[in-house]
Write a protein that binds this DNA or RNA. Structure first.
Length: 523
RNA sequence: GAGCCUGUAGCUCAGUGGUAGAGCAUCCGACUUUUAAUCGGACGGCCGUGGGUUCGACCCCCACCGGGCUCACCA
Protein backbone atom coordinates (compact mmCIF):
# COMPACT_ATOMS: atom_id res chain seq x y z
CA UNK A 1 0.00 0.00 0.00
CA UNK A 2 1.31 3.43 -0.86
CA UNK A 3 1.54 6.19 1.73
CA UNK A 4 -1.21 8.11 0.03
CA UNK A 5 -3.79 5.36 0.04
CA UNK A 6 -6.35 6.04 2.76
CA UNK A 7 -6.47 3.33 5.39
CA UNK A 8 -9.02 0.68 4.43
CA UNK A 9 -12.09 0.64 6.59
CA UNK A 10 -13.01 -2.96 6.05
CA UNK A 11 -13.14 -4.97 9.24
CA UNK A 12 -10.29 -7.38 8.38
CA UNK A 13 -7.94 -4.40 8.06
CA UNK A 14 -9.19 -2.88 11.28
CA UNK A 15 -8.48 -6.19 13.00
CA UNK A 16 -5.06 -6.30 11.36
CA UNK A 17 -4.31 -2.85 12.74
CA UNK A 18 -5.13 -4.06 16.24
CA UNK A 19 -2.75 -6.99 15.80
CA UNK A 20 -0.02 -4.74 14.40
CA UNK A 21 -0.37 -2.53 17.44
CA UNK A 22 -0.07 -5.54 19.76
CA UNK A 23 3.09 -6.74 18.00
CA UNK A 24 4.59 -3.29 18.26
CA UNK A 25 4.01 -3.24 21.99
CA UNK A 26 5.44 -6.71 22.44
CA UNK A 27 8.34 -6.19 20.08
CA UNK A 28 7.30 -9.22 18.01
CA UNK A 29 8.08 -9.52 14.30
CA UNK A 30 5.58 -12.25 13.41
CA UNK A 31 2.01 -13.10 14.27
CA UNK A 32 0.31 -16.32 15.35
CA UNK A 33 -3.35 -16.73 14.46
CA UNK A 34 -5.33 -19.54 16.06
CA UNK A 35 -8.66 -21.25 15.44
CA UNK A 36 -9.88 -23.97 17.76
CA UNK A 37 -12.12 -27.00 17.35
CA UNK A 38 -14.10 -28.77 20.02
CA UNK A 39 -14.14 -32.53 20.47
CA UNK A 40 -17.56 -33.03 18.90
CA UNK A 41 -15.75 -31.41 16.04
CA UNK A 42 -17.01 -32.53 12.70
CA UNK A 43 -16.61 -29.60 10.33
CA UNK A 44 -19.68 -27.48 9.73
CA UNK A 45 -20.61 -24.14 8.31
CA UNK A 46 -19.43 -22.30 11.44
CA UNK A 47 -16.01 -23.92 11.10
CA UNK A 48 -15.82 -22.57 7.59
CA UNK A 49 -16.84 -19.12 8.75
CA UNK A 50 -14.29 -18.95 11.52
CA UNK A 51 -11.36 -20.10 9.38
CA UNK A 52 -12.40 -17.95 6.42
CA UNK A 53 -12.72 -14.86 8.57
CA UNK A 54 -9.45 -15.51 10.38
CA UNK A 55 -7.73 -16.02 7.02
CA UNK A 56 -9.04 -12.67 5.78
CA UNK A 57 -7.67 -10.90 8.83
CA UNK A 58 -4.37 -12.68 8.31
CA UNK A 59 -4.21 -11.63 4.65
CA UNK A 60 -5.01 -8.05 5.64
CA UNK A 61 -2.26 -8.26 8.28
CA UNK A 62 0.24 -9.40 5.65
CA UNK A 63 -0.84 -6.66 3.31
CA UNK A 64 -0.67 -4.03 6.03
CA UNK A 65 2.61 -4.96 7.71
CA UNK A 66 4.50 -7.28 5.39
CA UNK A 67 5.32 -9.39 8.46
CA UNK A 68 5.27 -13.20 8.46
CA UNK A 69 2.45 -15.07 10.19
CA UNK A 70 1.07 -18.55 10.82
CA UNK A 71 -2.45 -19.88 11.24
CA UNK A 72 -2.69 -22.72 13.73
CA UNK A 73 -5.76 -24.94 13.51
CA UNK A 74 -5.83 -26.40 17.01
CA UNK A 75 -7.88 -29.51 17.76
CA UNK A 76 -8.94 -30.22 21.33
CA UNK A 77 -8.60 -33.93 20.72
CA UNK A 78 -7.44 -34.70 24.25
CA UNK A 79 -10.78 -33.73 25.73
CA UNK A 80 -12.74 -36.53 27.31
CA UNK A 81 -15.68 -37.87 25.31
CA UNK A 82 -18.70 -36.70 27.25
CA UNK A 83 -21.49 -38.39 25.37
CA UNK A 84 -21.87 -40.69 22.43
CA UNK A 85 -22.66 -38.70 19.30
CA UNK A 86 -25.85 -39.58 17.44
CA UNK A 87 -24.41 -39.73 13.97
CA UNK A 88 -21.73 -42.38 14.35
CA UNK A 89 -21.64 -46.19 14.10
CA UNK A 90 -20.46 -48.49 16.92
CA UNK A 91 -22.26 -46.54 19.62
CA UNK A 92 -22.05 -49.43 22.08
CA UNK A 93 -18.28 -49.52 21.74
CA UNK A 94 -18.01 -45.76 22.25
CA UNK A 95 -20.06 -46.00 25.41
CA UNK A 96 -17.33 -48.17 26.94
CA UNK A 97 -14.85 -45.37 26.38
CA UNK A 98 -16.82 -42.43 27.74
CA UNK A 99 -14.64 -39.97 29.64
CA UNK A 100 -11.41 -40.90 27.87
CA UNK A 101 -9.48 -38.58 25.58
CA UNK A 102 -10.69 -38.79 21.99
CA UNK A 103 -7.26 -39.87 20.84
CA UNK A 104 -7.46 -42.87 23.18
CA UNK A 105 -10.77 -44.11 21.80
CA UNK A 106 -10.95 -46.48 18.80
CA UNK A 107 -12.33 -44.94 15.64
CA UNK A 108 -16.01 -45.90 15.36
CA UNK A 109 -15.61 -45.61 11.60
CA UNK A 110 -12.68 -48.04 11.78
CA UNK A 111 -10.50 -46.01 9.45
CA UNK A 112 -8.03 -44.27 11.73
CA UNK A 113 -6.11 -45.21 14.84
CA UNK A 114 -8.50 -43.24 17.04
CA UNK A 115 -11.75 -41.30 17.08
CA UNK A 116 -9.71 -38.14 17.57
CA UNK A 117 -7.55 -38.95 14.56
CA UNK A 118 -10.69 -39.51 12.52
CA UNK A 119 -12.11 -36.13 13.45
CA UNK A 120 -8.77 -34.44 12.88
CA UNK A 121 -8.53 -35.98 9.47
CA UNK A 122 -12.00 -34.89 8.50
CA UNK A 123 -11.24 -31.38 9.67
CA UNK A 124 -8.03 -31.05 7.68
CA UNK A 125 -9.61 -32.53 4.60
CA UNK A 126 -12.44 -30.03 4.92
CA UNK A 127 -10.12 -27.06 5.32
CA UNK A 128 -8.00 -28.14 2.36
CA UNK A 129 -11.08 -28.45 0.16
CA UNK A 130 -11.55 -24.72 0.54
CA UNK A 131 -7.90 -23.94 -0.03
CA UNK A 132 -7.22 -22.49 3.42
CA UNK A 133 -3.58 -22.16 4.38
CA UNK A 134 -3.07 -23.50 7.90
CA UNK A 135 -0.92 -25.64 10.18
CA UNK A 136 -2.72 -28.37 12.04
CA UNK A 137 -2.08 -28.92 15.75
CA UNK A 138 -3.30 -31.72 18.00
CA UNK A 139 -3.75 -31.09 21.73
CA UNK A 140 -2.83 -34.70 22.46
CA UNK A 141 0.44 -34.31 20.57
CA UNK A 142 1.28 -31.07 22.29
CA UNK A 143 0.53 -32.47 25.74
CA UNK A 144 2.25 -35.83 25.39
CA UNK A 145 5.31 -34.51 23.57
CA UNK A 146 6.06 -32.24 26.52
CA UNK A 147 5.61 -29.14 24.47
CA UNK A 148 3.27 -27.72 27.08
CA UNK A 149 5.34 -28.87 30.09
CA UNK A 150 6.88 -25.51 30.99
CA UNK A 151 3.52 -23.80 30.73
CA UNK A 152 1.84 -26.56 32.76
CA UNK A 153 4.38 -26.19 35.57
CA UNK A 154 3.75 -22.47 35.39
CA UNK A 155 0.03 -23.11 35.78
CA UNK A 156 0.82 -25.25 38.82
CA UNK A 157 2.72 -22.37 40.36
CA UNK A 158 -0.33 -20.14 39.86
CA UNK A 159 -2.84 -22.84 40.78
CA UNK A 160 -4.50 -20.95 43.62
CA UNK A 161 -4.71 -17.74 41.66
CA UNK A 162 -6.41 -19.51 38.76
CA UNK A 163 -8.85 -21.29 41.07
CA UNK A 164 -9.76 -17.93 42.56
CA UNK A 165 -10.49 -16.50 39.13
CA UNK A 166 -12.80 -19.35 38.18
CA UNK A 167 -14.55 -20.05 41.50
CA UNK A 168 -16.84 -17.00 41.59
CA UNK A 169 -18.30 -18.06 38.24
CA UNK A 170 -19.30 -21.53 39.42
CA UNK A 171 -22.32 -22.90 41.18
CA UNK A 172 -21.83 -23.94 44.81
CA UNK A 173 -21.59 -27.70 44.14
CA UNK A 174 -18.93 -27.25 41.48
CA UNK A 175 -16.86 -24.97 43.68
CA UNK A 176 -16.08 -27.80 46.00
CA UNK A 177 -14.54 -29.97 43.30
CA UNK A 178 -13.12 -27.46 40.87
CA UNK A 179 -9.52 -27.50 39.78
CA UNK A 180 -8.07 -26.36 36.45
CA UNK A 181 -6.06 -29.58 36.44
CA UNK A 182 -7.69 -32.80 35.26
CA UNK A 183 -5.50 -35.85 35.92
CA UNK A 184 -5.80 -38.76 33.51
CA UNK A 185 -6.64 -41.86 35.54
CA UNK A 186 -3.53 -44.05 35.38
CA UNK A 187 -5.60 -47.25 35.33
CA UNK A 188 -8.79 -46.41 33.38
CA UNK A 189 -7.49 -43.59 31.18
CA UNK A 190 -10.50 -41.41 32.05
CA UNK A 191 -10.05 -37.64 32.27
CA UNK A 192 -10.84 -37.10 35.95
CA UNK A 193 -12.81 -34.18 37.34
CA UNK A 194 -11.88 -34.51 40.98
CA UNK A 195 -10.86 -32.24 43.83
CA UNK A 196 -7.13 -31.63 43.86
CA UNK A 197 -6.02 -32.28 47.43
CA UNK A 198 -2.43 -31.22 47.14
CA UNK A 199 -0.36 -29.26 44.66
CA UNK A 200 3.33 -30.09 44.65
CA UNK A 201 5.09 -27.42 42.67
CA UNK A 202 8.55 -28.88 43.17
CA UNK A 203 7.52 -32.32 41.92
CA UNK A 204 5.27 -30.89 39.26
CA UNK A 205 2.42 -33.10 40.44
CA UNK A 206 -0.99 -33.13 42.07
CA UNK A 207 -2.57 -35.49 44.58
CA UNK A 208 -6.18 -36.66 44.24
CA UNK A 209 -8.43 -39.52 45.25
CA UNK A 210 -10.39 -41.85 42.98
CA UNK A 211 -14.00 -41.45 44.15
CA UNK A 212 -14.79 -44.99 42.95
CA UNK A 213 -12.47 -46.90 45.30
CA UNK A 214 -10.83 -44.26 47.50
CA UNK A 215 -7.35 -44.87 46.08
CA UNK A 216 -5.02 -41.90 46.37
CA UNK A 217 -2.89 -40.99 43.38
CA UNK A 218 -0.09 -38.57 42.73
CA UNK A 219 -0.06 -37.54 39.09
CA UNK A 220 2.45 -35.45 37.15
CA UNK A 221 0.90 -32.49 35.36
CA UNK A 222 3.42 -32.84 32.52
CA UNK A 223 3.93 -35.24 29.63
CA UNK A 224 0.25 -35.86 28.97
CA UNK A 225 -0.48 -37.44 32.38
CA UNK A 226 -2.95 -34.62 33.01
CA UNK A 227 -4.71 -31.98 31.00
CA UNK A 228 -6.31 -28.67 31.82
CA UNK A 229 -9.95 -27.82 32.15
CA UNK A 230 -11.37 -25.82 29.26
CA UNK A 231 -10.93 -22.17 30.24
CA UNK A 232 -7.54 -22.75 31.84
CA UNK A 233 -6.58 -24.84 28.83
CA UNK A 234 -7.32 -22.00 26.45
CA UNK A 235 -5.38 -19.54 28.61
CA UNK A 236 -2.39 -21.89 28.94
CA UNK A 237 -2.31 -22.37 25.19
CA UNK A 238 -2.34 -18.64 24.57
CA UNK A 239 0.46 -18.32 27.10
CA UNK A 240 2.55 -21.23 25.84
CA UNK A 241 2.28 -20.50 22.13
CA UNK A 242 2.08 -16.73 22.44
CA UNK A 243 -1.08 -16.53 20.34
CA UNK A 244 -1.71 -13.07 18.86
CA UNK A 245 -5.21 -13.43 17.44
CA UNK A 246 -8.21 -15.65 17.96
CA UNK A 247 -11.88 -15.07 17.19
CA UNK A 248 -14.83 -16.88 18.73
CA UNK A 249 -18.61 -16.86 18.84
CA UNK A 250 -20.49 -14.73 21.30
CA UNK A 251 -21.50 -17.79 23.28
CA UNK A 252 -17.89 -17.80 24.46
CA UNK A 253 -17.79 -14.20 25.67
CA UNK A 254 -17.45 -15.24 29.30
CA UNK A 255 -14.84 -17.84 28.45
CA UNK A 256 -12.76 -15.25 26.61
CA UNK A 257 -12.97 -12.99 29.61
CA UNK A 258 -11.94 -15.66 32.11
CA UNK A 259 -9.26 -17.15 29.90
CA UNK A 260 -7.87 -13.66 29.39
CA UNK A 261 -7.72 -13.13 33.16
CA UNK A 262 -5.97 -16.44 33.61
CA UNK A 263 -3.53 -15.65 30.81
CA UNK A 264 -2.65 -12.37 32.55
CA UNK A 265 -2.27 -14.19 35.85
CA UNK A 266 0.27 -16.40 34.10
CA UNK A 267 2.07 -13.25 33.09
CA UNK A 268 1.19 -12.63 29.45
CA UNK A 269 -1.16 -10.33 27.64
CA UNK A 270 -3.95 -12.41 26.02
CA UNK A 271 -4.35 -12.29 22.24
CA UNK A 272 -6.39 -9.78 20.31
CA UNK A 273 -9.86 -11.34 20.14
CA UNK A 274 -12.93 -10.78 18.04
CA UNK A 275 -16.36 -11.93 19.09
CA UNK A 276 -18.57 -12.75 16.15
CA UNK A 277 -22.34 -13.12 16.28
CA UNK A 278 -24.01 -16.48 16.03
CA UNK A 279 -25.97 -17.73 13.09
CA UNK A 280 -29.68 -18.14 13.49
CA UNK A 281 -32.05 -20.54 11.82
CA UNK A 282 -35.24 -19.45 10.10
CA UNK A 283 -36.96 -19.07 13.44
CA UNK A 284 -34.20 -16.94 14.93
CA UNK A 285 -32.79 -19.76 17.07
CA UNK A 286 -29.12 -20.56 17.49
CA UNK A 287 -27.77 -22.98 14.91
CA UNK A 288 -26.88 -26.16 16.65
CA UNK A 289 -24.96 -29.08 15.23
CA UNK A 290 -26.95 -31.57 17.24
CA UNK A 291 -30.32 -30.11 16.31
CA UNK A 292 -29.39 -29.99 12.66
CA UNK A 293 -31.32 -26.80 12.07
CA UNK A 294 -30.07 -24.10 9.77
CA UNK A 295 -28.09 -24.93 6.69
CA UNK A 296 -25.16 -27.21 6.04
CA UNK A 297 -22.18 -26.38 3.86
CA UNK A 298 -23.17 -29.07 1.39
CA UNK A 299 -26.65 -27.65 1.10
CA UNK A 300 -25.36 -24.15 0.46
CA UNK A 301 -22.94 -25.40 -2.18
CA UNK A 302 -25.77 -27.25 -3.89
CA UNK A 303 -27.63 -24.02 -4.46
CA UNK A 304 -24.91 -21.44 -5.01
CA UNK A 305 -21.19 -21.09 -5.72
CA UNK A 306 -18.78 -21.15 -2.80
CA UNK A 307 -17.91 -17.49 -3.37
CA UNK A 308 -21.43 -16.60 -2.23
CA UNK A 309 -20.88 -18.45 1.06
CA UNK A 310 -17.67 -16.46 1.55
CA UNK A 311 -19.61 -13.29 0.80
CA UNK A 312 -22.15 -14.25 3.44
CA UNK A 313 -19.39 -14.87 6.00
CA UNK A 314 -17.54 -11.71 5.08
CA UNK A 315 -20.39 -9.37 5.63
CA UNK A 316 -20.74 -7.89 9.13
CA UNK A 317 -19.41 -10.70 11.34
CA UNK A 318 -20.60 -8.92 14.45
CA UNK A 319 -24.16 -9.03 13.31
CA UNK A 320 -26.49 -11.93 13.87
CA UNK A 321 -27.63 -13.36 10.59
CA UNK A 322 -30.22 -15.81 9.51
CA UNK A 323 -28.60 -18.79 7.88
CA UNK A 324 -31.34 -20.27 5.78
CA UNK A 325 -32.08 -21.01 2.15
CA UNK A 326 -33.65 -17.67 1.44
CA UNK A 327 -30.43 -15.74 2.11
CA UNK A 328 -28.57 -17.54 -0.67
CA UNK A 329 -29.77 -15.54 -3.70
CA UNK A 330 -28.91 -12.23 -2.13
CA UNK A 331 -25.48 -13.37 -0.93
CA UNK A 332 -24.80 -14.57 -4.46
CA UNK A 333 -25.86 -11.32 -6.06
CA UNK A 334 -23.91 -9.33 -3.47
CA UNK A 335 -20.82 -11.28 -4.42
CA UNK A 336 -21.44 -10.73 -8.14
CA UNK A 337 -21.83 -7.00 -7.54
CA UNK A 338 -18.59 -6.91 -5.53
CA UNK A 339 -16.65 -8.94 -8.09
CA UNK A 340 -17.94 -6.72 -10.88
CA UNK A 341 -16.98 -3.54 -9.05
CA UNK A 342 -13.54 -4.68 -7.89
CA UNK A 343 -11.47 -3.98 -11.05
CA UNK A 344 -12.47 -0.32 -10.97
CA UNK A 345 -12.83 0.08 -7.22
CA UNK A 346 -11.21 3.15 -5.70
CA UNK A 347 -10.60 1.31 -2.47
CA UNK A 348 -10.23 -2.35 -3.43
CA UNK A 349 -9.41 -3.32 0.17
CA UNK A 350 -12.93 -2.41 1.14
CA UNK A 351 -14.44 -4.69 -1.48
CA UNK A 352 -15.51 -8.15 -0.23
CA UNK A 353 -14.32 -9.79 -3.45
CA UNK A 354 -10.79 -8.58 -2.75
CA UNK A 355 -10.79 -10.52 0.52
CA UNK A 356 -12.67 -13.50 -0.83
CA UNK A 357 -10.10 -13.98 -3.58
CA UNK A 358 -7.05 -13.08 -1.52
CA UNK A 359 -6.45 -9.87 -3.42
CA UNK A 360 -6.44 -11.40 -6.90
CA UNK A 361 -9.70 -11.55 -8.79
CA UNK A 362 -9.79 -14.67 -10.97
CA UNK A 363 -10.57 -14.39 -14.65
CA UNK A 364 -14.23 -14.61 -15.59
CA UNK A 365 -15.34 -13.59 -12.10
CA UNK A 366 -18.78 -12.04 -11.98
CA UNK A 367 -21.71 -12.49 -14.29
CA UNK A 368 -23.67 -10.34 -16.75
CA UNK A 369 -26.89 -11.81 -15.36
CA UNK A 370 -27.69 -11.82 -11.67
CA UNK A 371 -28.61 -14.95 -9.75
CA UNK A 372 -32.02 -13.62 -8.77
CA UNK A 373 -32.80 -12.96 -12.39
CA UNK A 374 -31.70 -16.44 -13.34
CA UNK A 375 -33.86 -17.96 -10.62
CA UNK A 376 -36.83 -16.05 -11.92
CA UNK A 377 -36.22 -17.38 -15.40
CA UNK A 378 -35.64 -20.93 -14.20
CA UNK A 379 -38.92 -20.85 -12.33
CA UNK A 380 -40.88 -19.36 -15.18
CA UNK A 381 -39.74 -21.90 -17.72
CA UNK A 382 -39.57 -24.78 -15.26
CA UNK A 383 -35.93 -25.25 -16.17
CA UNK A 384 -34.70 -28.76 -15.56
CA UNK A 385 -31.66 -28.64 -17.79
CA UNK A 386 -28.91 -26.05 -18.32
CA UNK A 387 -29.68 -26.00 -22.06
CA UNK A 388 -33.20 -24.68 -21.43
CA UNK A 389 -31.74 -21.72 -19.59
CA UNK A 390 -28.95 -21.18 -22.08
CA UNK A 391 -31.53 -20.95 -24.84
CA UNK A 392 -33.03 -17.91 -23.16
CA UNK A 393 -29.68 -16.49 -22.12
CA UNK A 394 -28.49 -16.58 -25.72
CA UNK A 395 -31.52 -14.55 -26.77
CA UNK A 396 -30.20 -11.95 -24.34
CA UNK A 397 -26.45 -12.35 -24.91
CA UNK A 398 -25.91 -13.77 -28.40
CA UNK A 399 -23.32 -16.51 -28.53
CA UNK A 400 -23.08 -16.93 -24.77
CA UNK A 401 -22.12 -20.37 -23.57
CA UNK A 402 -20.48 -22.15 -20.66
CA UNK A 403 -17.03 -21.62 -22.11
CA UNK A 404 -17.29 -17.86 -22.57
CA UNK A 405 -19.12 -17.37 -19.26
CA UNK A 406 -17.87 -20.08 -16.88
CA UNK A 407 -19.14 -18.39 -13.73
CA UNK A 408 -22.54 -17.88 -15.31
CA UNK A 409 -22.48 -21.57 -16.17
CA UNK A 410 -22.09 -22.39 -12.48
CA UNK A 411 -24.96 -20.05 -11.66
CA UNK A 412 -27.13 -21.78 -14.23
CA UNK A 413 -26.38 -25.11 -12.65
CA UNK A 414 -27.24 -23.83 -9.18
CA UNK A 415 -30.35 -21.96 -10.31
CA UNK A 416 -31.81 -25.21 -11.60
CA UNK A 417 -31.23 -26.90 -8.25
CA UNK A 418 -32.63 -23.98 -6.27
CA UNK A 419 -35.67 -23.79 -8.48
CA UNK A 420 -36.23 -27.53 -8.28
CA UNK A 421 -36.04 -27.67 -4.48
CA UNK A 422 -37.53 -24.38 -3.34
CA UNK A 423 -39.43 -22.60 -6.07
CA UNK A 424 -41.01 -25.42 -8.05
CA UNK A 425 -42.53 -27.22 -5.04
CA UNK A 426 -44.44 -24.05 -4.19
CA UNK A 427 -46.16 -23.97 -7.58
CA UNK A 428 -49.89 -24.40 -7.89
CA UNK A 429 -51.56 -25.89 -10.95
CA UNK A 430 -55.18 -24.97 -11.35
CA UNK A 431 -57.77 -26.89 -13.29
CA UNK A 432 -58.83 -25.53 -16.71
CA UNK A 433 -62.29 -24.04 -17.26
CA UNK A 434 -64.58 -25.42 -19.97
CA UNK A 435 -63.44 -22.87 -22.54
CA UNK A 436 -59.80 -23.38 -21.61
CA UNK A 437 -60.19 -27.13 -21.83
CA UNK A 438 -61.42 -26.77 -25.40
CA UNK A 439 -58.58 -24.41 -26.24
CA UNK A 440 -55.95 -26.68 -24.75
CA UNK A 441 -57.34 -29.70 -26.54
CA UNK A 442 -57.21 -27.73 -29.78
CA UNK A 443 -53.65 -26.63 -29.06
CA UNK A 444 -52.47 -30.17 -28.39
CA UNK A 445 -54.09 -31.39 -31.60
CA UNK A 446 -52.71 -28.52 -33.67
CA UNK A 447 -49.25 -29.00 -32.27
CA UNK A 448 -49.27 -32.69 -33.04
CA UNK A 449 -50.58 -32.07 -36.58
CA UNK A 450 -48.35 -29.13 -37.39
CA UNK A 451 -45.22 -30.71 -36.06
CA UNK A 452 -43.70 -31.20 -39.50
CA UNK A 453 -44.86 -27.98 -41.13
CA UNK A 454 -42.35 -25.20 -41.53
CA UNK A 455 -42.60 -21.98 -43.50
CA UNK A 456 -39.45 -20.69 -45.17
CA UNK A 457 -37.44 -18.16 -43.18
CA UNK A 458 -39.44 -18.75 -40.05
CA UNK A 459 -37.85 -19.97 -36.86
CA UNK A 460 -39.57 -22.81 -35.06
CA UNK A 461 -40.19 -20.52 -32.09
CA UNK A 462 -42.00 -17.96 -34.25
CA UNK A 463 -43.99 -20.65 -35.98
CA UNK A 464 -45.06 -22.11 -32.66
CA UNK A 465 -45.87 -18.70 -31.24
CA UNK A 466 -48.12 -18.01 -34.23
CA UNK A 467 -49.77 -21.36 -33.77
CA UNK A 468 -50.48 -20.73 -30.09
CA UNK A 469 -51.83 -17.31 -30.94
CA UNK A 470 -54.06 -18.67 -33.72
CA UNK A 471 -55.51 -21.32 -31.42
CA UNK A 472 -56.32 -18.66 -28.83
CA UNK A 473 -58.08 -16.60 -31.48
CA UNK A 474 -60.28 -19.55 -32.44
CA UNK A 475 -61.73 -19.73 -28.92
CA UNK A 476 -63.73 -17.16 -26.96
CA UNK A 477 -60.92 -15.69 -24.91
CA UNK A 478 -61.49 -12.05 -24.10
CA UNK A 479 -59.08 -10.54 -23.68
CA UNK A 480 -56.61 -12.83 -25.39
CA UNK A 481 -54.27 -12.41 -22.40
CA UNK A 482 -56.50 -14.77 -20.44
CA UNK A 483 -55.60 -17.54 -22.90
CA UNK A 484 -51.92 -17.06 -22.09
CA UNK A 485 -52.70 -16.79 -18.37
CA UNK A 486 -54.39 -20.15 -18.69
CA UNK A 487 -51.28 -21.65 -20.27
CA UNK A 488 -49.12 -20.53 -17.36
CA UNK A 489 -51.51 -21.35 -14.58
CA UNK A 490 -52.76 -24.67 -15.89
CA UNK A 491 -49.67 -25.98 -17.65
CA UNK A 492 -46.76 -24.46 -15.74
CA UNK A 493 -48.31 -23.78 -12.35
CA UNK A 494 -47.09 -20.18 -12.42
CA UNK A 495 -48.88 -16.90 -12.76
CA UNK A 496 -46.62 -15.68 -15.53
CA UNK A 497 -44.24 -17.20 -18.00
CA UNK A 498 -42.02 -16.94 -21.03
CA UNK A 499 -43.10 -16.29 -24.61
CA UNK A 500 -44.89 -19.53 -25.11
CA UNK A 501 -43.68 -20.36 -28.60
CA UNK A 502 -40.10 -20.07 -27.44
CA UNK A 503 -40.92 -22.26 -24.50
CA UNK A 504 -42.37 -24.97 -26.74
CA UNK A 505 -39.35 -24.77 -29.04
CA UNK A 506 -37.05 -25.26 -26.09
CA UNK A 507 -39.18 -27.76 -24.25
CA UNK A 508 -40.09 -29.80 -27.29
CA UNK A 509 -43.37 -30.19 -29.17
CA UNK A 510 -44.02 -33.76 -28.10
CA UNK A 511 -43.30 -32.99 -24.48
CA UNK A 512 -45.57 -29.97 -24.62
CA UNK A 513 -48.37 -32.10 -26.00
CA UNK A 514 -47.80 -34.55 -23.17
CA UNK A 515 -47.82 -31.66 -20.73
CA UNK A 516 -51.21 -30.53 -22.01
CA UNK A 517 -52.60 -34.03 -21.81
CA UNK A 518 -51.39 -34.35 -18.25
CA UNK A 519 -53.04 -31.08 -17.34
CA UNK A 520 -56.32 -32.11 -18.95
CA UNK A 521 -56.26 -35.44 -17.18
CA UNK A 522 -55.66 -33.64 -13.89
CA UNK A 523 -58.62 -31.36 -14.41
C1' G B 1 -28.54 -11.88 37.10
C1' A B 2 -24.40 -10.84 33.31
C1' G B 3 -23.44 -9.69 28.34
C1' C B 4 -24.15 -9.05 23.09
C1' C B 5 -26.90 -7.81 18.74
C1' U B 6 -30.75 -4.95 16.71
C1' G B 7 -34.49 -0.58 15.56
C1' U B 8 -33.64 3.38 8.32
C1' A B 9 -39.58 3.28 2.69
C1' G B 10 -45.31 -1.43 2.88
C1' C B 11 -41.32 -5.88 3.05
C1' U B 12 -35.92 -7.41 3.15
C1' C B 13 -31.97 -4.61 4.15
C1' A B 14 -27.33 -1.16 2.43
C1' G B 15 -25.41 3.19 4.40
C1' U B 16 -18.51 4.61 9.99
C1' G B 17 -19.34 13.04 10.25
C1' G B 18 -21.00 16.50 4.63
C1' U B 19 -28.05 16.99 0.08
C1' A B 20 -31.36 9.80 3.12
C1' G B 21 -30.28 4.74 -0.64
C1' A B 22 -31.04 -0.35 -3.23
C1' G B 23 -33.93 -4.67 -4.33
C1' C B 24 -38.82 -6.36 -4.03
C1' A B 25 -43.99 -4.71 -3.70
C1' U B 26 -47.54 -0.85 -5.46
C1' C B 27 -49.09 2.75 -9.25
C1' C B 28 -48.44 5.22 -14.19
C1' G B 29 -46.32 5.09 -19.03
C1' A B 30 -43.56 2.85 -23.44
C1' C B 31 -43.89 -1.91 -26.24
C1' U B 32 -48.94 -4.58 -28.29
C1' U B 33 -48.68 -11.59 -30.67
C1' U B 34 -50.16 -12.61 -23.83
C1' U B 35 -45.71 -12.44 -20.67
C1' A B 36 -41.00 -9.71 -18.70
C1' A B 37 -34.93 -11.56 -18.37
C1' U B 38 -37.00 -4.75 -21.29
C1' C B 39 -36.95 0.70 -20.86
C1' G B 40 -38.79 5.31 -18.45
C1' G B 41 -41.34 7.57 -14.40
C1' A B 42 -44.11 8.00 -9.70
C1' C B 43 -45.38 6.81 -4.81
C1' G B 44 -43.27 6.10 -0.44
C1' G B 45 -38.95 8.07 5.48
C1' C B 46 -39.31 13.12 12.64
C1' C B 47 -33.25 7.06 10.10
C1' G B 48 -37.09 4.00 17.74
C1' U B 49 -37.39 8.37 21.70
C1' G B 50 -34.88 12.20 24.54
C1' G B 51 -30.45 14.65 25.54
C1' G B 52 -25.05 15.64 24.49
C1' U B 53 -20.48 16.51 21.31
C1' U B 54 -19.93 19.18 16.48
C1' C B 55 -20.03 24.43 11.76
C1' G B 56 -22.66 19.93 10.50
C1' A B 57 -25.08 13.47 13.38
C1' C B 58 -28.61 7.69 10.42
C1' C B 59 -23.33 7.63 11.87
C1' C B 60 -19.78 9.42 17.78
C1' C B 61 -21.22 9.74 23.48
C1' C B 62 -25.14 9.16 27.50
C1' A B 63 -30.01 7.70 29.01
C1' C B 64 -34.52 5.47 27.98
C1' C B 65 -38.13 2.43 25.08
C1' G B 66 -39.07 -1.68 21.77
C1' G B 67 -37.44 -6.45 19.33
C1' G B 68 -34.20 -10.65 19.75
C1' C B 69 -30.27 -13.70 21.21
C1' U B 70 -26.33 -15.77 24.21
C1' C B 71 -24.13 -17.26 28.77
C1' A B 72 -24.95 -18.42 33.71
C1' C B 73 -23.73 -27.47 33.60
C1' C B 74 -19.88 -28.89 29.94
C1' A B 75 -16.61 -27.70 26.13
Amino acid sequence: MSENTPAPLSWPFREAERIAERLKQKGKDHALFETGYGPSGLPHIGTFGEVARTSWVRKAFTDLTGLPSRLLAFSDDMDGLRKVPDNVPNKAMLKEYLGRPLTKIPDPFEKFESFGAHNNNRLQEFLRTFGFEFEFASASDYYTSGRFDDALLHVLRHHEEIVNIILPTLGTERRATYSPILPIHPRTGVVMQVPIEQVDVDNGSVVWTDPADGTKYETAVTGGAAKLQWKADWAMRWYALDVDYEMSGKDLIDSVKLSSSICRALGKEPPVTLTYELFLDEKGQKISKSKGNGLSIDEWLTYAPKESLSQFMYHAPQRAKKLFFDVIPRATDDYIAAATALPTAEKPHDNPAWHIHGGVLPEHAGSPIGFGMLLNLASVINADSPEMLWGFIRAYIPGADAESYPFLARLVHHAIAYNRDFVAPAKKFRAPTKVERAGLTDLAKSLAADEQAQYPGETPAEKLQNLVYAVGKRHPFAPLKSWFDCLYQVLLGTTEGPRFGGFIALYGVERTVALIETALARG
